[in-house]
Nucleic acid binder design. Structure first.
Lengths: 207, 207
DNA sequence: TGTACATCAGTGAACGCGCGTTCACTGATGTAC
DNA sequence: TGTACATCAGTGAACGCGCGTTCACTGATGTAC
């Protein structure tokens, strides 16, 4: 039991809710271990008793779910701000991919929670879909569509191409998180991404 | 406590070791949950008391590590048997990729343990590297080298190309395991792989 | 202005659970003499 | 052939731990009269 948190004033009970969410995120970052984010650990980090959590969240899953929502927003921010000043949509796509990778490496445990955990834990499948369709993944699809519309890509289905891109970047990100010491062909993860992205763009076959 | 296992005859103490490993693998498959593989659950599945595990394994990590070794062998078998009857190394590469994906979907929790878990749990990083270099990944590198040698690929570094391939297939496999209900562009995972593989071969840019 | 009271923002103690691991032991079985 | 004994293949009970969750409660604070 660390520092005791002073009780909120009347009418400000919702402040604890925010503090709980912040503490849960902080714990994920500091401990780098999703297992360490327990009701009791969060309560302790906030300076409050475990039952207090239940004043604001129905159960542990619900708490983790809301942490996920915040992290999806954060991921979206990374991608939204990538390549806004560039003209060529192919360059934008590259920077969006890099931004995705950077988000994962900056927040490995959050990334685990969002995309590598068991599907019966948060986030529920439906929400991953919704988030992907409506925000960050939607942006990648739009960038891909721009690549096609401007005649830079020889394909006709932006959704499938964007999905393939995502699969590749997710593979890279998740492997770097799970097995950081693999003998990667280049030392800097972003350089590895660039190299793979070039391969993906140019293809392998002789022309 | 389920069925009591009869005590081994003298000199046959090593049989329990095998039964423990088999039970641990079976538990991973049946429960589809690596968390469910506890010393006590394994002991119960074998029909033996928990301390008996320690007659054959130093601790829980050591047990899981040996399960990993067996699974790496199994993965290698999937890949070794893929495309042995085909001439074109590009086709072999495709079948090796499919085999990798099939292994993951056939054994999702084993796959999690091998490639998606925390790196301070088994398998230790060094072992993933060793296994990848010496067995299954080595085969993919060799196939890629054959593609280059026969003039099918325009690249010159089989290691990097194989790594990129692996990254893509791992991305697909791990996403299918973690988020099976995503709106994949095709219903059959192997069809998705084929589609992405074609994209990867042909590239995206206009020529 | 004073006071009874409802409400708000929590708390303390306990529930039952499963976990990894340790320790002293037991009882059957093969072997040496 | 008989028997003492070492060894083998385990067992039973317990350790301390952290977990999610529930329940009855408390004490400060604002408000109605």
């Amino acid at each position: 039991v660390t520092n005791r948190r002073p009780r909120s004033r009347r009418g400000e009970g919702e402040r604890l809710r925010e503090e709980i969410l912040e503490a849960a995120e902080r714990l994920l970052i500091e401990t780098a271990d999703a297992e360490a984010v327990s009701i009791r650990a969060v309560a302790d980090a906030v300076g409050v008793s475990p039952p207090s959590i239940y004043l604001h969240f129905a159960d542990k899953n619900r708490l983790l779910f809301e942490v996920c929502q915040i992290q999806f927003d954060e991921l979206d921010r990374y991608i939204r701000e990538a390549g806004t000043d560039l003209d060529d949509p192919v360059d934008v796509l590259r920077l969006q991919g890099r931004a995705y990778l950077r988000f994962g490496l900056d927040n490995p445990e959050h990334y685990r929670l969002l995309f590598m955990g068991r599907s019966d834990l948060p986030p529920p499948d439906g929400d991953v879909e919704a988030f992907l369709k409506l925000s960050c993944f939607g942006r990648v699809v739009e960038t891909t569509r721009a690549c096609i519309d401007r005649g830079r890509f020889e394909q006709d289905d932006p959704f499938t191409v964007a999905f393939a891109m995502w699969t590749m970047v997710h593979g890279l990100t998740s492997l770097l998180i799970s097995r950081p010491t693999l003998p990667w062909p280049l030392a800097d993860p972003e350089d590895v991404f660039d190299r793979f992205f070039e391969l993906f763009l140019a293809g392998l076959l002789t022309h």
